[in-house]
Amino acid sequence: MSFDFLQPDSLSGALEALAAYGDEAKVLAGGTAVVLMLQQRLIAPAALINIERVPDLNYINLKPEGMHIGPLTKLRDIERSTAIQEHCPLLSQTCGEVANVRIRNQATLGGNLAEADYASDPPTTLLALEAQVTTTSVRGTRCLALQDFHIGFFTTTLEPDELITDIFIPACPLESRMTYLKYKSRSSEDRPCTGVAALAAFDGKTCTELRLAVGAACEVPQRLPNIENMAKGQTLNDELVGEIAAGYAESIETLEDIRGSAWYRTQMIRTHVQRVLEDVRNGHR
């Protein structure tokens, strides 16, 4: 196996390399996915473009309108960032649940989104947070909502010559509580069998907004606005929580893999949507 190994030290250098190799190139960020696939000889790219030396892609910038996170930001840095812990605890909590600390020290948020592995934690939470992904190529810049970015198993709308250059998370609503519940069916460091992220805003005990995303159990993370809206203007009593959990379980087409059957995952969605709603209602998070 042989390939060209490029280490551009500028964004324009990286984009030109991507434009030249197109589909035949693989971008190397943290390497936790690409290197494994190379080792197993599952991929044979003509070029490996290491973007580690590209400056200004590793940042966490807090603005009044929200948070900008650079694609090369390590999951561990997001987990430990006091700014994110304060303004968007859901994201730091979720990144802290990924694999183990050695992986989190290496894996990047941009790499995680570009790989689009369904069995992953951050995409589910980023969907609940209504994240936007900015991509750049020599042709220009695009900004996409996350639901328009992940479109299938390991499939994104990222063009072969594009690089993720920013991830934006709009400021969370005031008086909101949020949590991510990761369910692992095998071992403590495993990828999720089912992941549920919830963000709920309250006026007293009345829920004014609910965002609920389910991932890892289905091809791409999903939100169901019709069911989310059932919570609007209501108190999240046990009956309503049960209805929402049942609605999610019945509506989502679940997948089958080594971590659980489709039937099992439907049950796990019901259980974990219920638990996550009880957590945000009771203010445990």
Binding site: L42, Y118, F153, L255, D257
Partner: peptide, 17 residues
């Protein structure tokens, strides 16, 4: 072989497309 590590879900979705 190596491709077997992709579970039913991924292969099925590819086939469906």
């Amino acid at each position: 072989g190596r491709l077997a590590q992709f579970g039913q879900a991924v292969v099925q979705s590819t086939a469906r497309k």
